[in-house]
Design a protein around this nucleic acid. Structure first.
Length: 348
DNA sequence: AAGGCGGGGTG
DNA sequence: CACCCAGCCTT
C-alpha cells in the first residue's frame, strides 16, 4: 500500500470526532483553521463552539464590534488572529456579498490567511488539491522520508511544500490533508511516537535509521526577555477604576488593561512612592496604596517572562474617563488581567 | 531572513 | 526546564 492509502485508511479508523469534520461550509472551516493555528485542539475547541454560537454566519461576525470579537477570543492568545478574522469577515460580507472565495489563490489574499490556511480551506471545502504543511506535516514527512533540512529555513519550507504537493491524493485532497495532520497529532507525536504500532513502520526512514527523536530539525530557539510590569488598580469611593486600551503595536494590541508602569527592576513596595514614574504619574493626588501580590506573578509567554505586580490604589475621585468597576468584565483583556479581575474582591 | 506574537500542555 | 501546538505578519 502506498503512503496516501495507508494514511487515509488509518484516518478513517482513528480520526477524532471534531465539530468541523461534518461540514464543508467555508465559514466554519475558516473559523476552525484560524482558531487552531498554533493551538492544541483541546484549548481551541470551546472557542470554536463559542464563535459559531455567537456568530453563526459571516454576516454576524462582520457586524460585530471588534471589542466583542476580542472579548470572545480572550485567553486564546495571538490576538492578531481575531482582529484579522474580523477584518476579513467584513470584507467577505460586504465586498464579496457573503460568498467566500473558492480558489486557493483568492483565499490566500484574505488577511490572516497564509499558505497553510488557504490550502486547508481550498482542499476541504472546494476539493482543490493544495497540500497543507503545518507542524504535524513537517514532523511526519521529515521522519518518514528522513529529511533533515531545517523546517524553519526558507529551503526547508519550499522543500516540504513541494514534497507534500507531490504526495497529495487529488481524488480526495481534504480528507488526505486532514489524515496527514491527524496522523502527526495522534500517531507520529513529537515525543514518544507510537512507532511500535505504526502502519508505516516498514518504510519509515527515520525509524530504520533510529533518528526519529531528532526529527524534524528546527533552527534557532526563541530567546526570552524579562520585564517587570506594574498594574495600577485604582479604586475610587464611587466604585470606579481606570482601564485603558493598548494602542501600541506589540503585545496585546487593542486589549484593555489597568494603567501600566514598566520597570527594569522590580518595584519594591517601600519604594513605590518615590519612584520617578510614580511621582510623575500621580502629580500631587492623595492616595493610599497597597501591594496585592507581594510575590511577583510570573506570567510566561513564549518570548517574554512578565514579572507582574498589582498595586491597589485608593483615591477619592477619578477623572471622567474612568469606568465603573462593575463593567470591568465586559472588556477584552490579557489573561493575566482577566485572572486578577476574577480573583480580586472588588467593592461593587 | 529573522523576529514578534499568547497561552496552555507535555516529558 | 525545553519544546510543541491545524501559522501569519512585519521588518
Amino acid at each position: 500500500m502506498d503512503f496516501k492509502k495507508v494514511l487515509t485508511n488509518w484516518y478513517s479508523v482513528n480520526k477524532r470526532d471534531l465539530p468541523w469534520r461534518n461540514t464543508k461550509n467555508p465559514y466554519f472551516i475558516w473559523l476552525s483553521e484560524i482558531i487552531m493555528q498554533q493551538t492544541q485542539i483541546k484549548q481551541g475547541l470551546p472557542y470554536y463552539e463559542a464563535f459559531i454560537t455567537n456568530y453563526p454566519t459571516v454576516f454576524d461576525l462582520a457586524n460585530a464590534e471588534e471589542q466583542d470579537v476580542l472579548k470572545l477570543w480572550q485567553g486564546l492568545g495571538y490576538y492578531s488572529r481575531a482582529r484579522n478574522l474580523h477584518t476579513s469577515a467584513k470584507y467577505v460580507a460586504k465586498d464579496l456579498k457573503g460568498v467566500f472565495p473558492n480558489a486557493y489563490s483568492d483565499i490566500l489574499k484574505l488577511k490572516g490567511i497564509g499558505d497553510y490556511t488557504a490550502s486547508a480551506i481550498a482542499s476541504i471545502c472546494f476539493d482543490e488539491p493544495t497540500a497543507v504543511v503545518d507542524g504535524n506535516v513537517y514532523r511526519v514527512l521529515s521522519r518518514y522520508f528522513g529529511i533533515d533540512t531545517p523546517i524553519n529555513s526558507s529551503k526547508g519550507i519550499k522543500e516540504f511544500k513541494h514534497l507534500a504537493t507531490t504526495l497529495i491524493d487529488a481524488s480526495n485532497p481534504g480528507d488526505y490533508n486532514q489524515a496527514l495532520m491527524e496522523f502527526g497529532a495522534i500517531q507520529c507525536k513529537p515525543k514518544n511516537p507510537n512507532c511500535n504500532v505504526c502502519p508505516l513502520m516498514n518504510s519509515c526512514v527515520a525509524l530504520q535509521k533510529g533518528n526519529v527523536d531528532s526529527l524534524p530539525i528546527k533552527l534557532k530557539k526563541t530567546k526570552v526577555t524579562k520585564k517587570h510590569i506594574n498594574f495600577l488598580v485604582f479604586m475610587s469611593s464611587d466604585k470606579r477604576t481606570l482601564f485603558e486600551q493598548r494602542t501600541t503595536k506589540g503585545i496585546w494590541q487593542k486589549l484593555y488593561q489597568f494603567p501600566l508602569i514598566e520597570t527594569e527592576d522590580a518595584l519594591p513596595s517601600d519604594g513605590f512612592k518615590t519612584h520617578p514614574k510614580i511621582t510623575s504619574y500621580f502629580n500631587d493626588i492623595e492616595y493610599e496604596y497597597s501591594l496585592y501580590n507581594t510575590k511577583e506573578l510570573i506570567h510566561k509567554l513564549s518570548h517574554q517572562h512578565l514579572y507582574t505586580k498589582f498595586w491597589i490604589i485608593e483615591v477619592d475621585k477619578l477623572p471622567k474617563n474612568s469606568i465603573l468597576i462593575s463593567k470591568l468584565k465586559t472588556y477584552p483583556t490579557p489573561i493575566v488581567i482577566g485572572n486578577f479581575i476574577e480573583e480580586f474582591s472588588f467593592p461593587i
